[in-house]
Computed example of a mutant assay.
Amino acid sequence: MDEQPRISDAEWEIMKVIWEKSPATAADVIHALRDNKTWKDNTIKTLLSRLLQKGILTYEQVNRVYYYSPVLTEEECKRQERQSFLQRVYGGALKPMLVHFLKEEKLSSQEIDELKKILSEKEK
């Protein structure tokens, strides 16, 4: 597994905006999060800077404006996060995690059918 730096919960919020609006300026991110977050503008700029340092974001400067773009796709980040979680919590073993979730969570008939279909396809 390629070891990418972990993304914090706050950084995930920034990345969701970047994935949706890329390339995006800091002002674009601030505007997109204004209704949902009480973060100050400098907080968002700090989070953007951290994501740049981690290599998750890149930027292009046009005049005095920075346009941020993701280095990794959302799916690549989710995959890394899943692998990290699986390793940290279940020692990398998939079966105990699946069993735990299946026993603990309520599933609709439709969800159960979808899971059966996925398992059937995996079996082939």
Results as ranks from 00 to 15, higher is better:
E3Y: 05
E3A: 11
Q4K: 13
Q4W: 07
Q4F: 06
P5H: 07
R6M: 00
S8W: 05
D9N: 14
E13W: 01
I14H: 02
M15R: 02
K16G: 13
V17F: 00
W19P: 15
S22V: 12
P23R: 01
P23E: 05
A24Q: 10
A26R: 03
D28V: 05
H31R: 10
L33P: 15
L33T: 11
R34T: 15
W39G: 06
W39D: 13
K40S: 12
N42C: 06
K45Q: 11
L52T: 13
L57H: 07
E60V: 03
N63A: 08
Y67K: 02
P70D: 01
V71F: 00
L72G: 02
T73H: 01
C77D: 12
R79T: 09
R82C: 03
R82F: 05
S84E: 11
S84R: 08
F85Q: 12
L86C: 00
Q87I: 05
Q87Y: 03
G91E: 13
G91F: 00
A93I: 10
L94T: 15
P96K: 02
P96I: 03
L98R: 07
E104K: 04
E105F: 05
K106P: 15
S108A: 01
E111F: 00
E111P: 08
D113L: 11
K116Q: 12
K117N: 14
L119P: 09
L119S: 09
E121C: 05
K122T: 13
K124D: 13
